[in-house]
Amino acid sequence: MHHHGYLWTGPKQRFDDEALRRPPPPHPPPDSSSPELIQRHREVRAEFPVVDLPPLETAYWLIKPEKLIRGTWDEPKGAAAWFGERLAEYAPRFGSEAEREGRRLAGLVGSAAARLGWGGDVSHGCYLERPLFLSLALVCCSPNRSMPEVACPARALSARVRPAATPP
């Protein structure tokens, strides 16, 4: 088992577009449905697997393109360290003082390491300067507990840790 890290920042309004954050229903709407509904289903079916928006269910990151992976680690400790580094990096931009508090951030990192240790996924989000939103995720892979049938999105795992992208 290994862990992939994901990071997304963007307008909260875009984050709230839940249709693009959830997989489409397995069957298209009936032919008798409105043309708008049929078209929206087609759009979501085409866009969900490739859109960079965080999925509503964390494990669905694994069906997204490999280019969205910000890092890969064999050990929970390394993945949790990356998570902590991202929290520290963005903390000055958090929407509230309470979210910036050091003990709170350390607690989130410790909790992330523990959850990854038993094979769970980690998902955390918070407001930056409004209207921006930050979403961080750590996803267990090969296999994932909630989606064991999904193959690893990374083709070449020889370079385990990829550098994190610079914040927008």
Rank of each mutant, 00 (worst) to 15 (best):
M1D: 09
H2N: 09
H2M: 07
H3R: 12
H3E: 08
H3A: 12
H4L: 13
H4C: 07
W8G: 00
G10Q: 12
G10N: 10
K12M: 07
K12N: 08
K12C: 05
D16H: 13
D16F: 14
D17K: 01
A19K: 14
R21W: 01
R22M: 07
P24M: 07
P25T: 06
P28A: 13
P30R: 15
P30G: 13
P30A: 15
P30N: 11
D31M: 12
D31H: 14
S33I: 07
S34W: 07
Q39D: 14
R40C: 04
R45V: 08
E47K: 02
P49W: 03
P49Q: 08
P49S: 05
V50M: 13
V51R: 03
L53G: 07
P54F: 02
P54Y: 02
P55V: 01
L56C: 07
L56R: 13
E57Y: 01
T58N: 15
A59G: 03
Y60F: 09
L62Q: 05
L62Y: 08
I63F: 06
E66L: 11
E66A: 15
K67V: 10
I69C: 01
R70K: 13
W73A: 01
D74N: 14
E75C: 10
E75I: 11
P76C: 12
P76V: 09
A80M: 10
W82A: 01
G84L: 04
G84D: 02
R86D: 03
R86C: 05
E89Y: 06
E89Q: 14
A91K: 06
G95H: 04
S96V: 11
E97W: 04
E99D: 14
E99W: 12
E99T: 07
R100G: 04
R100C: 08
E101R: 14
G102F: 05
G102V: 07
G102Y: 03
R104E: 05
A106G: 06
G107N: 10
G107Q: 08
L108S: 03
A113Q: 09
A114Q: 10
A114K: 13
G119F: 02
G119W: 02
D121R: 03
V122W: 00
V122I: 15
S123G: 13
S123T: 06
H124G: 03
H124V: 04
G125M: 05
G125Q: 12
Y127Q: 09
L128Y: 12
E129C: 10
L132C: 09
L134W: 02
S135D: 09
L138I: 11
C140P: 01
C141L: 09
S142G: 00
S142D: 02
R145D: 10
M147C: 06
P148W: 03
P148V: 04
E149W: 03
V150R: 03
V150M: 10
A151P: 00
A151K: 04
A151G: 04
C152N: 12
C152G: 09
P153M: 01
S158R: 14
A159Y: 07
V161P: 03
P163F: 00
A164R: 08
A165Y: 00
P168T: 07
